[in-house]
Simulated scan of single mutants.
Amino acid sequence: MADDFLDTILVVVPVRDEAELLHGCLEHLQRAMDQARLTRPAIRVHLCMVLDHCRDSSGAVAAAAAAGDPRITLISVDFGSVGASRRAGIADLLKTITNDADDEALLHRIWIACTDADTRVPAHWLTTSIALAESGSDAIAGTVEPDRADLDQELFAAWAREHHRHEGHKHVHGANLGVRASAYRAVGGFDPVPLHEDALLVHKLRRDGFRVLSTGRLHAVTSGRARGRVSTGFAGYLRDLARAPAAREDGQST
């Protein structure tokens, strides 16, 4: 739709002690950013890495990437909260792009793409997001799967039974989530919480009548480790799934 045209993409990635996996995340993101610019040369693409209380070499990895790519910026925070980190990264980029102007038309042309530092997105991640957004979506919930190298065959099969890549799936993953900036601001953005900030945002968007598309056309691979940066979350879900392969499909941020 002409009214849904985008001219700016903002990618936000919270980082908490992910030096080992951050290289792969950045390589895949830069590939997706490059493809977006090839497809739409006029579109602006920016990436903010939000370093949240990092004690490993994540900052050095991110700084090296930023030194070689002017599209990448870094901010350092001490929240210990993925919701607060996502919120801060988005606020930082929006301030830069909009100069704090509360311009609905300007915000409507900006797309916010969220993933995680332990996740690898496909090269078409942004180009497909652009196409789906411009076809009328205010937000897009993609799918993820844990890295098969991190799981045994039985546990991956249990995951696959509970998670499907079909259209209209029930899952919400902060590692593969996009939203139009105007819709994001209208519902108050990510809540500054340590868990389920992704599902809470989608709930608010749906509650307020925004167009949320759940699709398998955007699919990413994330870490399958059983010990994560918080006691629950995605890694906790995998631990529970290992204990009870018949885990329920509940549509939460898993």
Rank of each mutant, 00 (worst) to 15 (best):
D198Y: 02
A220C: 13
P194T: 13
R225E: 12
P192Q: 04
G224Y: 06
L218Q: 11
S214R: 13
V193W: 02
G188W: 10
V187F: 04
L201V: 03
K204G: 03
V187H: 05
G209Q: 06
G228F: 07
P194A: 11
G228Y: 07
R211N: 14
L200T: 00
H196N: 12
A220T: 14
R229G: 02
A226M: 13
R207F: 11
D198V: 03
V202S: 00
R207Q: 15
L201P: 04
V187Q: 04
L218M: 15
P192Y: 05
L218A: 03
P194L: 06
A226Y: 15
R211M: 06
T222N: 10
A199D: 01
D191R: 14
V212M: 10
L218F: 05
R229D: 08
L205D: 07
L201S: 01
S214E: 14
G216W: 08
R206V: 15
D198H: 01
T222A: 03
A220S: 15
T215M: 09
G224T: 10
A199C: 02
R227K: 09
P192W: 08
R207L: 13
R211H: 14
R207W: 12
D191M: 11
R207A: 14
T215R: 05
F210I: 08
L213F: 09
F190D: 11
R206G: 08
F210E: 02
D191Q: 14
S214H: 15
S223R: 02
H196D: 11
R207M: 10
K204T: 10
F190H: 15
P194H: 06
G189R: 02
S223Q: 02
H196F: 12
R227C: 03
V230M: 08
D191W: 03
P192N: 02
L213E: 12
V221Q: 09
D208P: 12
G189C: 04
A199N: 00
L218N: 07
V202R: 00
R206W: 07
A199L: 00
G189N: 04
P194M: 03
R206N: 13
G216S: 07
D208Q: 15
R206E: 15
L218D: 06
A220R: 04
V193K: 03
V230K: 03
F210Q: 02
P192D: 03
S223C: 11
L218P: 11
E197A: 08
H219K: 10
V193S: 02
V212S: 10
H219P: 08
L213C: 11
H203T: 12
P194E: 11
R225H: 13
H203A: 07
L213G: 03
F190C: 09
D198I: 07
V212T: 14
G224F: 10
D198S: 00
V212K: 08
L195G: 01
G209K: 08
R217N: 12
F210K: 01
G189V: 10
T222V: 14
D198A: 02
R206M: 13
R227W: 07
A220H: 09
D198L: 00
R229T: 14
A226N: 02
